[in-house]
Write a protein that binds this DNA or RNA. Structure first.
Lengths: 137, 137
DNA sequence: CTGATTTTTGCAATGCTATTGCGCTGTTGT
DNA sequence: ACAACAGCGCAATAGCATTGCAAAAATCAG
């Protein structure tokens, strides 16, 4: 099992250290996006800053993407697609449940094209739907 | 002039205090959404907390809406539509310029309908487009 | 194998934002 | 005039993101 995780990291040009293997393993087990604090609690005797840097490195290398769901804390989730270092291709909708406060990716739901007024150039789109998820209904 | 501002407040059931008149006056002069820090700088010798509470009261009464553009600071802008206390009807797109870091409302651009998977209930949608605005191109 | 260099890690510290508590003040209503 | 209440300003707190620095670990060169 650990070998698979290691392969994922090396394929993304990330040095597979013990800490990073733990972080990736934890991410793989999640069904929703998690915050740095969640990660810290899940991998208890670990340093928050180290985890923070692991996530940043993963994001930089195109392994995870970060989501600002308005909860105050940035959430992170594994990329589904073939994201490359520096360029994320996962323009999908994110859903934030107002009840359980979990953020999930809806990769099937692509972000519709938004036509802006003249002179505006789109570089990035952030679409967060908030409401009640299927587990909390 | 001050009378007009006062009328706006009383129509929204907000006690027109000197501070609130100042805040509303400042908001009316803006062409883009502003943060609490912007407001504090614009109304210099004012207490940040008081301004914060003025904005919160305005939001509660349906006079302004708050925007989380991912910049870290919540932005505020006057509602265009007939928002009521507690219920905001201004589901429009917001644009964040990566260059000048200004956030503007695009009230003409309504948020498209997002069909969620079964069991998900939408309560709110937050759509932020990031890029270069017409002034920075 | 050994010393040097780079990478990773852990701790301390900082900065910014949001938010609440509390007492003072000024206004309103009786 | 007095009581009740709303608004204001100050202090304080909490959470998150981010950086600097030094020790530790891994990698590389000779």
């Amino acid at each position: 099992m650990t070998e698979n995780i290691e392969v994922i990291l090396t394929q993304k040009n990330i040095n597979p250290t013990a800490m990073r293997l733990l972080v990736l393993d934890f991410l793989l087990k999640q069904s929703s996006a998690i915050s740095l604090t969640d990660l810290e609690k899940g991998l208890d005797p670990s340093d928050r800053i180290t985890l923070y840097r692991a996530l940043k490195k993963f994001e930089e290398k195109g392994l995870v993407h970060s989501i600002d769901d308005g909860s105050g804390a940035t959430k992170y989730a594994l990329c589904e697609n073939d994201c490359e270092a520096g360029h994320h291709h996962d323009l999908h909708v994110h859903f934030f449940c107002n009840t359980c406060r979990e953020t999930s990716c809806l990769p099937k739901h692509h972000i519709p094209q938004i036509s802006l007024p003249d002179g505006f150039k789109t570089e990035e789109v952030n679409l967060i739907v908030k409401g009640i998820c299927n587990k909390c209904i």
